[in-house]
Amino acid sequence: MSQTRKKRIDGKQRFVLAVLIPTVLFFVFFSFIPIIYAFYISFHEMDFLNPPAFVGLANYKGLIGDTHLYNSLRVTATFAVITVFIGGALAFFFALLINSVKRGQAILRTVYFLPVMTSLVAVGVIWGWLYQPRFGLLNEVLKIFGIPRQMWLSSPKTALPSAIAASTWQGMGFTIVIFLAGLHSISQTYYEAAEVDGANSLQKVWYITIPLLRPTFVYLLITGFITGFQVFDQLYVMSGPLNSTRGFIELLYTRAFSYYQMGRASAMAFLLFAIIVTLTLIQFKIVTKTQVEH
């Protein structure tokens, strides 16, 4: 009896192992080993075309005082903060509106989700046309209202906000869907009880929806910052003048594959890793503290 049970467990374990092994191997070969190798490269001067030369901490020291790197960090942080907070607030607002619609909610959800499934490059090209200062649609619309022509992506002052706006539009559908899933999980009895107590719509959102959506907010905050700090495609496609939209990953990519500075690019990758880990830990700390206080 016990031997049959043991065999059955062994069979299950074998199945689990068989399912897991390809994933683990994939992770080891395509993530773990490259990460270790990138760490090794970060201590070398290397271009893959010549033998690597050990340079110690020089690549890391070179990051100190690197004005291009500081600029890319500023661009990336601005992008991450605005997309997480303003993009998140807008997505929450739209999710509430969609959630209140009785009919056609699925269609609305699909419509909002469509840009998420659209190629980032295609989105960049389309927005590039919309933003074109002389012949673009946006300026034509502004002209109707007597508003002067804007330079959008063509000015160092407005390029980053313009790219962020397009990117927020593109990614908002995903955030809306997450919020909608959270909203659906809140029991209607809370709202009914609040109505009995005479709460208005705003009070219901403030005292019921937002507190009960805390896990969703935490999830979106953390993942939003992580993806925000790793932004590449959006800023690469919708680039502005004078490196005004050059984000951290784009600079890293350019240094690696256009300037062939693999060592320095790897050092940048680990700096970004450290920044993201630190930010995530701080966020966890704040969230845990407020949860305890709550």
């Binding site: 291009h68 063509s154 000015s155 160092p156 350019t254």
Partner: peptide, 17 residues
């Protein structure tokens, strides 16, 4: 870098702005 990002490529933007 000199042809694109941090040299000749900057002249247009600097002049325009």
């Amino acid at each position: 870098e000199v042809e694109n990002d941090y040299g000749l490529g900057m002249l247009q933007d600097l002049l325009f702005f």
